[in-house]
């Protein structure tokens, strides 16, 4: 098992009576799987992911990658086990107004950080890894351009290249299609698929989750409401109860994946 999260719970520290954000969430990702984490806004997707990628320490429960508890290893060791595409793209960097900004190649080279000692220089080996990561994500032609000047879709591909350069076995993606035009949403998801990586992704768009993921976990108010294959999770009943929208679902004749047609005018 690549990733195993057991009985995750999270409530903000020092918050007194504040509500628990995530409760009793267990999930796993097997080698080579692309697993989706779906749910309405505020259902706890990002919180679960942030516990997985070691930013939030769970109030209870544990996260293990390759059988190792992420809180028992250092940030550096953890960064060699998992690479993260967070929603934070590096605002300070890509804001552009003040900082000149990193070039695409420099941005991708950052992926080598957990592998290098302070005294080591980036050598030919690193340069090769960075080059091939850029090649695989198709950003090689823009290697010397400033990251800040790229479009949203291009930025995501550069960050994907950085994640590849990190050479971690698990990829954690927090809404990788967020703020992207439809074309780039498919482009980035196709890329993830084609790379054959093991990944868990929080996804906002149900049709994306249905089309690309091997398995889904559906969150509702911090609890797991359903899990299984897209066809098992994305049913008319669960969409009505969790999202509060009527939908008609048919299985696509060729892919066998659920195809969702929302019917917002019909009462739930």
């Amino acid at each position: 098992m690549k990733l195993q999260a057991r009985d995750l719970r999270w409530r903000p520290p020092h918050s007194g009576t504040a509500r628990t954000i995530v409760e009793d969430v267990s999930l796993h990702v097997g080698e080579g799987e692309l697993v989706g984490l779906i749910g309405p806004n505020g259902s706890g997707k990002s919180t679960v992911l942030r516990m997985i990628y070691r930013i939030l320490r769970p109030t209870a429960g544990a996260v293990a990658v390759d059988g190792r508890d992420v809180w028992e290893i250092s940030a550096r060791e953890n960064a060699r086990l998992m690479a993260v595409l967070a929603q934070e793209q590096g605002g300070g960097v890509d804001a552009g107004g003040g900082f000149g900004g990193f070039s695409v190649r420099e941005m991708v080279s950052m992926g080598r950080t957990p592998h290098k000692s302070p005294f080591a220089r980036d050598d030919r080996h690193d340069a090769g890894i960075v080059q091939s990561a850029m090649q695989r994500t198709g950003v090689l032609p823009m290697a010397e351009r400033s990251f800040a000047t790229l479009s949203g879709g291009e930025k995501q591909r550069v960050l994907m290249a950085r994640a590849l350069a990190q050479q971690a076995g698990l990829l954690v993606l927090d809404e990788p299609t967020n703020h992207l035009d439809v074309r780039y949403q498919f482009e980035i998801m196709n890329l993830i698929r084609s790379l054959g990586v093991t990944a868990i992704a929080a996804l906002h768009e149900l049709h994306i989750a249905a089309h690309y993921c091997d398995r889904l976990y559906l969150l509702e108010n911090g609890h797991l409401a359903a899990s299984g294959t897209p066809a098992e999770v994305l049913t008319e009943a669960t969409i009505a109860s969790v999202y509060g929208v009527r939908a008609a679902i048919r299985l696509h004749p060729r892919t066998g994946r659920p195809h969702i047609e929302f019917m917002p005018d019909d009462p739930v």
């Binding site: 967070a86 590096g90 605002g91 300070g92 900082f99």
Partner: peptide, 11 residues
Amino acid sequence: LAGDETASTLG
């Protein structure tokens, strides 16, 4: 410079 969360996930 890329952000605290990014820095943490880079080790």
